[in-house]
Each structure stands twice: as C-alpha cells, then as structure tokens.
C-alpha cells in the first residue's frame, strides 16, 4: 500500500545551519505517527515543509503517491493536508464560531461567493457548531476568540483541523503550554479522532506521545535516528543517548 505521506532525503538549511538533514519518513494510512526530538531538532521546520510554507532545498515529498514537493501551501490544503500551529494561530478578532465556520466554508469550496450573507448559511453554521460541540466549546461559540483561554484555543485548533476533513493532519505541539488537566483533556480528544485521520504529531509531552502514538520517529539534528512502535523506541539506546546528551530528559 502506498503510504499517505512519504519524504525522501529531504534537505533544508538556513544560511549554513542544516535544519533538515537527509530526512526520510513514511506515514501509513490511519496511523498516529509521533515525531519527537530534543529542542532545535528541526521538528517545526519539517512541518513547514510538509504543509508547504517552506520548500526543501532538495529531496521529495509525496502525498498519496503524488509529488507535492514544490506545491504551494493552499493547494496542499485542498488536497487534504492540514496543520495546527505550535503557537496558537487563530483569527483572534473573529468569534469562535466564525473561526470554525471559515474552515468549514473553505472545505466546501464556495468562498468566492460575495453575495449571500455567510452567517445565514445554515449548513455551514450547523457543521461548525457540531465541531465546536465535539471539542467541548459549543457554549463559547459567540465569544470573541481573543477572550478564550489558552487551553480552549488549543481545542479550537483541533476543531478547525477537523473542519477541513483533511486526510492528513499535522499537529504541531497541541499540548504546548497546557496545564496537567488541560493536557489530559487534549489526549482524550486526540484519542477520539485517532484512526479516522492520519496524524503526524509533534509533541514534547512524552506521556501523551507514548499514550497516543502508533509509531514514533526520533529526530536529532534534522535527521531521523530511529522509527518504531513506542515499546521499541523506549528501549532504544541511541535515542536515550540523544536525549540524555541534551539533558532535556523526559523519556
């Protein structure tokens, strides 16, 4: 079976600093593939190349067998790749519902309509409300996004990712900055969507990663040093060395 996502020998450097080094990765349909690694390992750089805001210097990226290495971000999104951001990336001045509704309308492909009032289109509103309900934010639908808490923002990100009905979801540290309770809620939420979408998860919270992932790849200095099921990674000496060397611990 062709993998959903496959990168071959990806390279990317910024002014002499190599951020992605000969990176080959394969993600199969329906799996939750976690990517872990010490700070500065190039995890976010990898995501930006996968979603298309940056292009690799060399190497290739394939989505369902199709070469998308140089395809612009908005077209990849239409093919079915969505990402969430490490730093919350929402439209803070819009209402919570409008944020999600925008994602829903983008999916429906009728965004160039200049005539019908967007807020009166029931199909879009209903779908957006259903998604908000799924992440537990239905009561906050009419609030301005800025007024919500950080944890709620992270949940909104997931609702927006779900709205796109993307086949491949790239989640960049969804637990970043969450408290203990909030993290657990997020893990439950991710568990509930796991299997329905192919997910690439970048995360520092090791408890979450080991609770959720089907497979884990370990990224060090832009290169994947090991890929395997959680149990294999846990016992991998090389991985342990890479983490201990960085003193960031966590394994």
């Amino acid at each position: 079976m062709t993998p959903v996502l496959e990168t071959r020998r990806l390279m990317k450097s910024f002014g002499g600093i190599i951020a992605t080094n000969d990176l080959s990765l394969s993600v199969t349909k329906g799996e939750l593939h976690a990517i872990i690694g010490p700070n500065g390992a190039g995890k976010t750089t990898l995501i930006t190349q996968l979603c298309g805001t940056q292009t690799p210097d060399s190497g290739s990226i394939r989505f369902k067998g199709r070469d998308i290495t140089r395809m612009p971000a908005h077209r990849r999104a239409r093919l079915g790749i969505t990402r969430s951001f490490q730093i919350t990336s929402l439209i803070l001045e819009m209402s919570v519902l409008d944020n999600v509704a925008l994602a829903v309308q983008a999916r429906q492909g009728s965004s160039f309509d200049m005539i019908r009032p967007a807020r009166s289109i029931k199909a879009i509103r209903d779908r957006a409300m259903a998604l908000l309900a799924r992440v537990g934010l239905q009561d906050k639908a009419d609030m301005i996004t800025r007024a919500l808490s950080h944890g709620e923002h992270r949940h909104m990100e997931i609702a927006i990712a779900l709205a796109s009905e993307a086949e491949l979801m790239l989640l960049d540290e969804p637990m970043a900055g969450l408290g203990h309770e909030e993290s657990r809620a997020m893990v439950d939420l991710l568990k509930s969507i796991k299997g329905k979408h192919t997910i690439v998860l970048i995360e520092h919270d090791m408890d979450a990663v080991f609770a959720l992932a089907d497979r884990i790849s370990v990224l060090v200095y832009g290169h994947i040093i090991a890929t395997g099921a959680p149990a294999e990674i846990r016992g991998n000496k090389e991985v342990e060395a890479a983490y201990l060397g960085e003193e960031s611990g966590g394994l």
Partner: peptide
Amino acid sequence: ERVVMLGLN
C-alpha cells in the same frame, strides 16, 4: 497564514 492553511489562496 491560518487562512492559507485552510486551502484558500
């Protein structure tokens, strides 16, 4: 960037 990521040019 967020809107671009939704697939909108």
